[in-house]
Simulated scan of single mutants.
Amino acid sequence: MPAPRSWQSETARLGNAEPSDPTGWFEQLWSSAAHGDITMPWDRVDPHPALASWTGAPAPGGASGTAVVVGCGLGADAEHLDRLGYQTTGFDVSPTAVQAARGRNPGSSVTYAVGNLLDLPPAWAGAFDLVVEIYTVQAVNRSVRDALTAGVRSLVAPGGTLLAVQGAARQPDDDGPPWPLTRTEVEAFGRDGLEAVSIEELAAPGAAPGRPGTWRAEFRRG
């Protein structure tokens, strides 16, 4: 039996396959992983370091309010927020990814759901006190970037917070996926009543000095 192909190479092949359906390839990717044809995408059990350091180390269960993780994948970030005490939803455009998240986290109190940033359920509009978006927008073709960031913004409740973590780019580059964000593109999360609290570029682990890092941007709705 041949060894599974790398999920990164499969992403590079699928990500540009069908411009008319810019998010449809995610299900193909996760389905291939479920069948053992490729390695498991975004496979981690710990929260992303940019999220973990932002939340700090509060006592488990001390947080309150609702939280949502956009493009939750296998659920590591959603489970982190759940442990902190948030009533957490994690959604992904891929039904296979959602099934994998449920299987990896049996007994979890996180609500895992299928959802598409380009066609979100009306009930989710302004429903979450904390919205966490990590690497989802950058994974989709830049042609729908405005619509994707608008979808993310729409989830934030009055008085709520958005944390966006994205790869940093010095200038727009159509050679993806991924398609890292420029500072201007990150600032675009701060519309529709959201205002920037902080936008910082973190050093990417193992990256050479001077290379683009990772944006961590916090926004708040008044």
Rank of each mutant, 00 (worst) to 15 (best):
A78W: 04
H80F: 10
H80G: 04
H80W: 11
H80C: 08
L81A: 04
D82N: 05
D82L: 01
R83P: 04
L84A: 02
L84C: 08
L84P: 00
L84W: 04
G85Y: 08
G85V: 12
G85Q: 09
G85N: 15
Y86I: 05
Y86T: 00
Y86H: 05
Q87T: 13
T88R: 09
T89H: 10
T89K: 05
T89Y: 08
T89C: 08
G90M: 11
G90I: 10
F91Y: 12
F91D: 02
D92H: 14
S94G: 07
S94A: 09
P95S: 09
P95G: 01
P95Q: 04
A97G: 06
V98S: 01
V98A: 12
V98G: 01
A100K: 05
A100S: 13
A100V: 04
A101F: 03
A101H: 08
A101I: 04
A101D: 01
R102D: 05
R102H: 00
R102I: 07
G103Q: 14
G103A: 12
G103F: 04
R104C: 03
R104D: 00
P106R: 03
P106M: 03
G107D: 04
S108N: 04
S108L: 00
S109E: 11
S109A: 15
V110G: 01
T111Q: 09
T111A: 12
Y112S: 02
Y112I: 00
A113H: 05
V114D: 08
V114S: 12
V114T: 10
G115D: 06
G115T: 06
G115M: 07
N116C: 11
N116Q: 10
N116A: 03
D119Y: 00
D119L: 01
L120R: 11
L120F: 08
P121N: 12
P121Q: 13
P122D: 14
P122Q: 14
A123R: 14
A123D: 15
W124I: 15
W124Y: 15
W124K: 14
W124A: 13
A125S: 13
A125K: 15
A125I: 13
G126I: 09
G126R: 10
A127P: 08
A127E: 11
F128V: 02
D129M: 15
L130G: 00
V131L: 10
V131E: 10
V132T: 12
V132A: 13
I134H: 14
Y135R: 01
Y135A: 08
T136V: 10
V137L: 05
Q138F: 06
A139G: 13
A139T: 09
A139I: 10
V140H: 02
V140C: 05
V140Q: 06
N141H: 12
N141D: 11
R142Q: 15
R142S: 15
R142G: 14
S143Y: 09
S143W: 02
V144C: 09
V144T: 12
R145E: 06
R145A: 02
R145M: 06
R145D: 00
R145S: 03
D146P: 02
D146I: 08
A147K: 14
A147W: 06
L148H: 02
L148E: 00
L148Y: 01
L148I: 06
L148M: 08
V152F: 06
V152G: 02
V152L: 00
R153I: 01
R153S: 00
R153Y: 07
S154L: 07
S154R: 06
L155Q: 14
V156P: 04
V156K: 03
A157S: 13
A157V: 10
A157I: 03
A157M: 07
P158F: 15
P158Q: 15
